[in-house]
Design a protein around this nucleic acid. Structure first.
Lengths: 134, 134
DNA sequence: CTCCTTGCAAATGCTTTGCATTTAT
DNA sequence: ATAAATGCAAAGCATTTGCAAGGAG
């Protein structure tokens, strides 16, 4: 008999809180950001748990790591669909955008390099609307 | 009288060595990689100097930081032209590619978001030819 | 001579890990 | 009951910084 895959998904209180924090924002928080928000709902939570939980969420397809900033801090997103980001050089804000990179591009690059592509992410940089206005 | 900008460019021995190391490879080395190669040519060089020099090269348009890996380590490239990368999920190799993202895309995204784009980089992931063959 | 660069070591910041305890199923 | 999750503190890396000494112009 096969083991039910759902048996593997232990959705504990901490995990619910972390996922809830991640789903309640579009700001692409770092692990530290998530930790601080999670602590408001779950005061005894430790930061190691947040790191482990974020890894777990990524491993189980409930979140993705979308960006690493200049400090090397990873930024997370509960939106697991493939999409791209525009990062403001002044304020650091991360906007979701969709780069119109045609699927044909995969074939072109694969033929030229032999690389088998299964994912891509485009990162735009410049100034967000608010910073460009100043 | 204006100060000549060339006066600012002190190309010291260390800087020449670091730039030479960077220009002699297409492997997109980390700062630690550059440090180890540089030490072969310049035994007394310290790693802090390599970090400072890489920053300096980037600041002066002689190199760019192209990628941050899972460990948060920055990878550098002496090729300062805009180009994209394909990173193998198995061996970690970084290939140069050119994503055919049309300039029109900038206008579309700028109109939709108000973001003023001045750069972009696309990161592909999957398997390189060697790893895909196994 | 003066400012910039360098080497060393210590400090920093993000993240991971060991271990004993608690918790979900 | 049993295997996994948690909290805490300590350890790990990549990177940065303070400072005194060395080097370029």
């Amino acid at each position: 008999m096969e083991q039910q895959p759902t048996t593997q998904l232990r959705m504990t209180g901490n995990r619910q809180v972390v996922l809830e924090v991640l789903r309640s924002t579009k700001s692409h928080p770092t692990a530290q950001d998530v930790f601080m928000s999670a602590r408001d709902l779950q005061p005894q939570i430790g930061f190691a748990t947040v790191y482990r939980t974020l890894d777990w969420l990524v491993q189980h397809g409930l979140a993705q790591e979308v960006y690493r900033d200049k400090d090397g801090a990873a930024h997370y997103d509960a939106n697991v669909a493939r999409h791209d980001h525009a990062i403001c050089n002044r304020c650091g804000k991360i906007l979701d955008v969709e780069a119109p990179l045609h699927a044909l591009a995969y074939a072109i690059i694969e033929r030229a390099s032999g690389f088998r592509i299964d994912w891509h992410a485009t990162e735009f940089s410049g100034l967000c609307a608010a910073c460009a206005d100043e």
